[in-house]
Design a protein around this nucleic acid. Structure first.
Lengths: 209, 209
DNA sequence: CGCCGTCTTGACCCGCGGGTCAAGATCGGT
DNA sequence: ACCGATCTTGACCCGCGGGTCAAGACGGCG
């Protein structure tokens, strides 16, 4: 925690020239870190643990990443891109707003179930001030997406009148709550991803109208 | 982090004999800690910060608490008791299940808005393995409460058929999502607690039926 | 007044873990 | 064979912060 809240200086990095093998090695570190973070939390995972898990010496870590926090940030950004793509894959511009919201919610739930480790990670550091920026930077975008859809649905009369930001929070909250509970096994073993996905779809649709 | 996961040994404490003034001082430390934790997170709050904020020397901290983690645990337990009482206050055994769930949800939202600092705190350390026990210890109870009510409502035909644990997660998730967003100002300033409370009530009721 | 338990202080200790560094190993290119 | 860039190592440095401690101040009670 040398200088909190300032990991944007990861941007003007002296961008190294990585070989293919280098990029592969870097990915190994990212993967190892993601798993360890998810298991034990960010703070409880030492840099040396990540390296051990990837089978390399500690010093090598700093060849690929300027700081521990920078790796985390990179992990977050990667994850966000993938989620966004997953959501885009179910985009159907011809459908009505409620359906599109439900589609997005369902896709998100499935994606989060598939990448449980990654999202456990997000969960962990939500409120660490050091990462507030990187984390919020994304949250707002999704919120806006959903809010726009909500307003569209309200104009069409499919969604009850209420502050659109409230409704959007409700949708996003439902997705993350269900995903969390599923990931933590709080739902029992007899609930499959498909069960969850269809349930979330119905839950959100009900709540909206 | 001397010995993780073992803060139950806070129970067989050499229970000191605190004077009235002593208890008051202890409370000051708890209050100061709660505020700082909420602001900067648990890890980022040093013991010395808590003491400075309470206007006492660092050594005194360990007169009242065996470790930093013990204070946190005490904070969590206190909070839980208060919330439970707030929920009990709106208990109306004559009402139907859906109404009772909505009542509980509304009361919880109001309570969390009133005690924002305390709940920001809970949010912070959700997934720290050191506190997993203390935190889960409570979560399960609420879940069970709601699940029982859900099953009652399903028998009465007021709530759609679906795994009760799923439904319960949905209710609890809605409450916490809305509370979080309100606390973090993501809802904008023109949303009052009353707005939020009534909205949550409607949201949950809609989703249930 | 003198004793004892409660309370209070701040200097000190020390393990932990992030980050550095100087010394190579490895490999493609000329 | 030589060179330079990429890669790899592990010992080392050092600040941070949780926890300890010996020394008192305060206050009630016999």
């Amino acid at each position: 925690m040398t200088n909190a809240g300032a990991l944007e200086n990861a941007a003007p990095r002296d961008d190294r020239q990585h070989t293919d093998h280098g990029l592969e090695r870097k990915q190994q570190l990212l993967d190892a870190a993601a798993e360890l973070f998810a298991d034990r939390g960010y703070a409880a995972t030492r840099v040396v643990d990540i390296c051990a898990s990837a089978g390399v010496a500690k010093g090598l870590f700093y060849w690929y990443f300027p700081t521990k926090g920078a790796l985390f940030a990179e992990l977050v950004r990667t994850m966000r891109l993938r989620l966004r793509r997953a959501q885009g894959d179910v985009l159907d511009p011809t459908a009505d707003a409620v359906t599109r919201i439900a589609n997005g919610a369902e896709a998100s739930v499935r994606f989060m179930a598939d990448h449980a480790a990654y999202f456990a990670l997000l969960d962990v550091e939500r409120s660490d001030p050091e990462f507030a920026d990187v984390l919020d930077e994304g949250a707002g975008v999704y919120l806006d997406d959903v809010r726009r859809l909500v307003e569209e649905g309200q104009r069409a009369g499919d969604i009850a009148d209420a502050p659109s930001s409230l409704v959007a929070v409700g949708v996003l909250g439902a997705v993350s709550s269900f995903s969390n509970s599923y990931r933590n096994g709080r739902l029992g073993d007899n609930v499959t991803v498909d069960d969850l996905a269809t349930f979330v779809r119905r839950w959100v649709t009900n709540a909206l109208t």
